[in-house]
Design a binder for these strands. Structure first.
Lengths: 243, 243
DNA sequence: GCATATTTGTCCGTATGTATA
DNA sequence: CTATACATACGGACAAATATG
């Protein structure tokens, strides 16, 4: 599908129906999530495009995608940067989380008890396995998946998308401090409790538990993040990387 | 700021800090909202780019922006089309509306009565003025603004953005049938009632009213839309327009 | 079913304005 | 203030897919 048959990240058009820009965006999204591109660094079109071996136009498409997901920040005539969340951003993210997550569970309370909890249970199991084997980064991932699956219970594609976007954004903040164990281990038990309560059919009580959960998590993360951003703050908004 | 000093949609760099692609996207967004580009039509790169006098690459970037707002649909090697919502889409939009709008009012019930209701009151006044003067299209706009302002009470930028996006999408469906009077006039009184109830400080009751409102609106629009889509359906996916 | 014309997808080269050293 | 680096936007090119006759 690409005109000049670029091989590095380009071909196999007939197999994958995604555009090259989307594939490049996938790569960059992973790099950001795993911290290879930490918040604050600039992604130069020349460098990144050179490494991946794609044209600037295509790369700009990818940047557009990630900018819309709020993972990158676009400053006019300055270029794109990995987003650095402010404390206000984190607060707003938790506002949205409370609104959506609690709202979904609240709707379940009205609908009735036959929920499909298998996917939710799987994330709890993943978290327990990760904890047993001291894989704290995986524990963080499982914890995030738990909340994604809570929202998935509403079976609303648009709600799922909003939640995915917000959680990916939150990961930017989590990555700035990452001590995954202290941040996530205490909440695993509460996830299990919420799951158990949902299994019993008492969605109203689960909603209360989730509300308290989010309140506690918000307090912990905001204080830790403000501290980290204040002391280790002012990460170089320059410092190109890539080549 | 543009290289070759394009005048039509190009210059005045020092004043407007937005890129040309965003400005072009603004124009197209308006054209879609006002129905000049109705759902289903294809936007040809050649035609639209020719009329607006911008290069193909820049136009494609605008298309990308609107595609991510779900106003355009991108079919591989076919071009971009103004989105045609399915009935499932409309159902999901109302799912999101109920979740967010009711959730926001529910949070107000916990927070306490000093809400800032001026902007909300203004939309009701706009609707009444539009009704008095038989400007049904403006009534529809005012009605949509009412719900946007309800959500704005939460003072959450991300929630605002989600709501704006969802309402812009809903407008695609409303435009397919447009008999704005029958669709919007009955709800003006209910808007006023909800505003009055919020003024009295009883957010809990306002939430119930809003919930019933959305339920009724959903039923009406879904049935009307399914009918319209079934009979008048299969709008030409061809029929270029522009020049 | 086939040949042609149109349109899209991708990439390159270049000119110009903007921000920073 | 000058110089450098880079983002922005343009036009052109060609391959591939689609539409048209």
């Amino acid at each position: 599908m690409p005109a000049h048959h670029n091989e590095l990240a380009g071909d196999r058009a007939l197999l994958s129906r995604t555009s090259t820009a989307e594939r490049v965006a996938d790569v960059l999204r992973s790099r950001i999530a795993e911290g290879f591109f930490p918040p604050g660094v600039r992604l130069s079109e020349g460098d990144v495009g050179g490494v991946l071996g794609i044209s600037r136009n295509t790369l700009r498409e990818s940047f557009r995608l990630l900018t819309h997901e709020r993972l990158l920040e676009h400053r006019l005539n300055r270029g794109v940067f990995v987003r650095v969340l402010s404390v206000d951003d984190v607060l707003d993210i938790y506002r949205v989380r409370k609104l959506i997550e609690c709202g979904v569970v609240n709707q379940l309370a009205e609908a009735g008890p036959p929920f499909g909890l298998d996917a939710l249970a799987a994330t709890v199991a993943d978290g327990q396995a990760a904890t047993r084997e001291w894989r704290w980064r995986d524990l963080a991932t499982a914890n995030i998946h738990f909340h994604r699956e809570v929202v998935a219970l509403a079976r609303s594609p648009r709600t799922d998308e909003v939640m995915s976007s917000v959680l990916a954004e939150l990961r930017l903040a989590l990555h700035v401090m990452d001590s995954p164990r202290r941040l996530h281990e205490p909440y695993l038990a509460r996830n299990r409790e919420i799951l158990r309560t949902l299994r019993s059919g008492d969605a109203a009580r689960a909603e209360t538990m989730l509300r308290e959960y989010l309140e506690d998590s918000r307090k912990q993360i905001v204080t830790a993040y403000a501290q980290r951003l204040g002391s280790g703050g002012d990460r170089d908004a320059q410092g190109a990387r890539g080549a």
